[in-house]
């Protein structure tokens, strides 16, 4: 038999797992990874797995990870867009699994984009 507190814990845990099925625009932070041939060849898959890993470790129920096609700047792949509701879209370039931890911690959790990884910094 489960106590009321245990039921509540199951609720929360399951909600994290299935949150991406609820269409709540404006509440969800989206991580979009360019995964066309160019992105995959440049190593987008390990980057995506690193994002998923980090998000699940931190129990971030309001974040979804999804893929997109070629953004057009193949030389900068792997590219990742992070869209926090109410803020401007931030595009990270030349991503690696190692860089993912900082993006999640500083940008997604604390709301401060990691300037040095962004497309703006790379193109200077």
């Amino acid at each position: 038999m489960k106590s009321l507190a245990e039921l509540e814990a199951i609720r929360q845990k399951t909600l994290n797992r299935i949150n991406l099925r609820q269409e709540k625009e404006g509440e969800v932070t989206r991580v979009v990874i360019g995964m066309a041939t160019c992105g995959i060849a440049a190593g987008a898959r390990p980057v995506m797995l690193a994002f998923m890993d980090e998000i699940s470790k931190r129990n971030l129920s309001h974040v979804t990870v999804s893929q997109t096609g070629c953004i057009g700047m193949c030389r900068l792949e792997p590219m990742v867009d992070v869209i926090v509701p109410g803020q401007e879209k931030v595009t990270y370039v030349h991503m690696t699994p190692e860089k993912v931890g900082r993006v999640v911690a500083e940008h997604i959790v604390n709301g401060r984009p990691v300037e040095e990884y962004t497309i703006g910094a790379a193109e200077k």
């Binding site: 991406l20 998923m52 129990n59 990870v65 999804s66």
Partner: peptide, 10 residues
């Protein structure tokens, strides 16, 4: 906890 990036609902 298993997080998946996509769910396919059939």
């Amino acid at each position: 906890m298993d997080i998946y990036r996509a769910h396919v609902l059939c």
